[in-house]
Nucleic acid binder design. Sequence first.
DNA 1: GACTTATATAAGCACGACCTGAAATACTCG
DNA 2: CGAGTATTTCAGGTCGTGCTTATATAAGTC
Lengths: 121, 121
Amino acid sequence: MHAFDVLGDPVRRRILELLAGGERSSGEVTAVIQQEFGISQPAVSQHLRVLRDNGFASVRAAGTRRLYAVEAGPLREVDLWLERFRGFWDQRLDALATELARGKRERRPATEKKETTDEHG
Amino acid sequence: MHAFDVLGDPVRRRILELLAGGERSSGEVTAVIQQEFGISQPAVSQHLRVLRDNGFASVRAAGTRRLYAVEAGPLREVDLWLERFRGFWDQRLDALATELARGKRERRPATEKKETTDEHG
DNA sequence: GACTTATATAAGCACGACCTGAAATACTCG
DNA sequence: CGAGTATTTCAGGTCGTGCTTATATAAGTC
């Protein structure tokens, strides 16, 4: 399974967001996800499994709990893939910087079409 | 359709890679993709449509040809989402900086393992 | 206009991802 | 050990996505 396939699911992205805030138990993650997505506990567990199996998260047993944490590998891979496109928006910033440096008074909004990135809150 | 869903498909990722090298006609893209993935022309056209519809690519008519180009928006969005995880691998560099600042003499190589991101060549 | 080339759209089918409910595993406590 | 809680695994059903073939649109050429 490719890294992007893993990230293709909103639940998994949300789980990763939660884990980005630090280690969380399966139960903690499940509580939030159930609240937000209304899916069953096994469903969440299955998503956690996908994250585990694909190296996005590591698990650590603490008694009967499983503590999940973000694992950088695959995310870095994604970041690396994006690398080749970074010029497409950095350029614009460079261009903007140049414009400003040249003293252009006509100011264009730096942010173009604005869509909500946030899918949960 | 969420940006990550669009990138979830290997054909679409490949198309974007091609477009990253500059404007390409539908035909040129199709030729490469058909070669590499063995899918039909309509299939490629449908992928191009998804890229268009989701703002990953823009089209420009040139006679009977359609020239496609990368559009930054959604990719930047993805990049932005990754932002919050960047610490997970940059940390190491920070840690190194700290170590150096503390005057540790044991020096570790700053560049770690290098992996190929490319899935086709 | 008839014909060819370039590309997009439509309709239908198939496979896999994701969900659910049920059951299994694993640890803790008395 | 038996009961209880946390979590994973299993089996089955549903729906969306991506494929194919057939066809439509549009632009060039003669």
